[in-house]
Amino acid sequence: MKFRTMGLIVKEQSIGEQDKLVYALTATNGIIKAFVRGAKNIKNQKCAATSLLTYSRLTVYKGRESYIIGDAIPERIFSKLRGDVVKTCLAQYFCELAITICPREQNAEEFLKLILNSLYLLSENKRSAKLIKPCLEMRLASLAGYMPDLRMCRVCGEYSCDNMLFLPKSGAIECAECHHENGEMKILLNPSSLTALRHTIYADDNKLFSFALPESDLDVLNEASENYLKYMFEKDFSTLNFYKTIS
Rank of each mutant, 00 (worst) to 15 (best):
K2S: 11
R4I: 06
T5I: 05
M6C: 09
L8W: 03
V10H: 07
Y23V: 10
Y23N: 13
A24F: 15
A24I: 15
K33A: 09
A34E: 01
V36P: 10
C47A: 14
C47H: 13
R57G: 03
T59C: 11
V60H: 14
G63A: 10
I68S: 11
G70A: 03
E75P: 04
K80I: 10
L81A: 15
D84E: 07
V86N: 07
E96Y: 08
E105T: 11
E105V: 06
A108D: 04
L114H: 02
L119M: 07
Y120M: 03
S123D: 05
K126Y: 11
E137C: 07
E137M: 11
L140Y: 01
A141S: 10
A144N: 12
G145M: 08
R151A: 14
P168C: 08
K169V: 09
I173C: 13
E174T: 06
E177M: 11
H180W: 10
E181T: 09
N190T: 06
S193G: 13
L194M: 04
H199E: 11
K207Q: 13
S210E: 02
F211I: 05
A212D: 14
D217V: 06
D217S: 13
D219S: 02
N222A: 03
L229V: 06
L229F: 04
Y231R: 03
M232L: 00
K235R: 15
T245F: 02
